[in-house]
Structure formats: C-alpha cells, structure tokens
C-alpha cells in the first residue's frame, strides 16, 4: 500500500536534496563556525567579540534604511505613473526602469565611479564650467546613492505589479464616496498596495544591508560596512569563525526586522479594524 504514496513523494525528492545541500547544510556550517574557535572547540567568544563591530552594524543598518526609504519614496510615485500610463507606454517605461538590472553590478558600480570620481565625468564638466569640483566618491552619500541606484528596480517592480492590478473602480468608488485625490491615495491606494511596498522593501533592504562592493568602490575605502567586514574575515582562513558569527547575527537581525515589518504592516489588513465597535 505504500507503493502509491512512495510514487507520489518521488517528485519531492529533488527539492528535498536541493534544500538540504544548499539551504540546511550551509546554515549548519555557519552555526558550527560561529560557535567554535580555530581549533574546533565550542565557544561564545566569537559572538561576544562582535561588540567591537557594533559601530559597523549600526552604520550598515542606518545606511540601508536610508537607501530603502529613498527607494520607496521615488519608486512609489514612479510605479503609480507607469501603471497609469496605459499598457503600451507603461511597457516601455517599465522596460527602461528594468534595463539597468541586466547590466552587471560591478560594471554599473564602476561606471558610477567613472562619473562621480574626483577626476570623473561630472567634475570635469564642472571644472570646464569653472564651478570648481565636488567630492562625491568617498562620502557616505555616494554609497547611499550607489545602493539606491543598484537596487531601485527591485523596488519599482513589486510595487508596479500590485499597482497595475488595482481595480480602477475602487478609485472611482472612493471618489464617489467623497475622497479627494489625496484622501484616495491614503485611504484606498496605499493600503491596497502595501504588499508591493513590503516586498520591495524586503528586496532592497536585505541585499543592501550586506552589500560590500558598493561601499568599497563608492566609499573609496574610507569606511567599512558590515558586508566589507564579513568579506575580510572570509579572505583570511584564521578568521572564518568571526565571519560566521557576524553572518549569523546579521541573519537574525534581518529576520527580526522582516518579522516586525510584516507584523506592523499586516495589522489593519484583516478584521482588526472592526475593533472600534463595542
């Protein structure tokens, strides 16, 4: 009798194998390294020692928060207008937003450097106009700008997807019931497109918090983000354990922040609002 159920579970096996090799095992390794020293003895020293990196953590988190917020603020109206532009124009506009995604991140970052560097394109124009030069590369602003630039499409796409599915008659209904355009935005459009913002934030915040390449290039090596720190630990075999410990803490932090965000955002989507009645 188990033959049938065996047959049914066969297709699951590849997924299972994949999951074990690429998800579970790496996690086990990270855990193992994080809680052992160089000789393989169990220790909390790696985790406790992380307090040295508190500044770097804080800097990474705050920079990716700022970059994510900028992404939302710019991407939301953009997604709105693309979804309003009609199918033909909308397709072209969306295409333009997505093109950068097809170009390698390194190349994009390098070209940003070429443009923003002290002797770069922008400054040579400014010099030619006798307006002096601006120092951009090497500042925190440049790194934030780089993060925004590199991850922007990941914010537009999910918001646009939700926005384009929004039933237009809901907007008409809102107007019919007395909402001005601004009120419609806050009372109807925003709550109904929140899920797009949440996926966008997840897709921008998570990779940007651990980015290392952008900060190295556009930061000009003047400061470290947590991604740079992790990278450095893993380029030296004697510090694997510390690298693993940082990664683990990062992972927990990200999970925690995603959990809080979902909790916070999911609050009034369900029946919780009925609570205002006796």
């Amino acid at each position: 009798m188990n033959k049938k159920s065996l047959m049914r579970s066969l297709p699951v096996i590849p997924n299972l194998v994949w999951g074990i090799i690429f998800i579970v095992l790496p996690l086990v390794f990270v855990l193992y390294y994080a809680f052992t020293d160089f000789d393989g003895n169990f220790t909390f020293a790696n985790i406790i020692g992380l307090s040295d990196y508190a500044q770097t953590f804080l800097l990474s988190v705050s920079m990716s928060v700022i970059a994510t917020v900028i992404c939302v603020l710019v991407a939301y109206p953009m997604a709105y207008f693309i979804s309003k532009a009609g199918p033909q124009k909308g397709k072209i506009l969306l295409f333009l937003v997505l093109i950068p995604m097809w170009i390698n991140l390194l190349i994009r970052t390098y070209s940003m450097m070429a443009i923003l560097d002290d002797e770069g394109f922008l400054n040579s124009i400014l010099t030619a106009l006798h307006m002096g030069t601006v120092r951009i590369v090497g500042t925190k602003g440049a790194v934030i700008f780089g993060i925004v630039y590199d991850f922007f499409p990941y914010m537009v796409l999910p918001i646009y997807t939700v926005m384009s599915k929004l039933d237009k008659s809901l907007i008409e209904a809102s107007s019919d019931l007395g909402c001005s355009k601004i009120q419609t935005l806050f009372r109807v459009i925003l709550p109904l497109t929140k899920s797009g913002i949440i996926s966008g934030v997840t897709m921008v915040f998570v990779p940007s918090i651990s980015t290392f390449y952008i900060s190295q290039k556009l930061g000009g090596g003047t400061f470290d983000l947590i991604g740079d720190t992790i990278e450095r630990q893993f380029s030296n075999p004697t510090t694997y354990n510390i690298g693993a410990a940082i990664s683990l803490v990062m992972m927990v932090l990200i999970l925690l922040s995603l959990f809080i965000m979902n909790k916070f955002a999911g609050d009034d989507t369900d029946e919780a609002k009925g609570g205002m009645m006796p």
Partner: peptide
C-alpha cells in the same frame, strides 16, 4: 469632480474595498 457631487453610485461589480470589513 465626483466627490463634490450629491450623488452616489452602486458600481456594476460593487467595487467594495477589500482592505476594509
């Protein structure tokens, strides 16, 4: 504009707000 008219509409497909009870 519609929101300033003393007129309300029952839409063909109802157009109820799915995020509200």
């Amino acid at each position: 504009p519609p929101y300033k008219r003393q007129v309300n509409t029952v839409f063909q497909k109802y157009a109820l707000f799915p995020h509200l009870n």
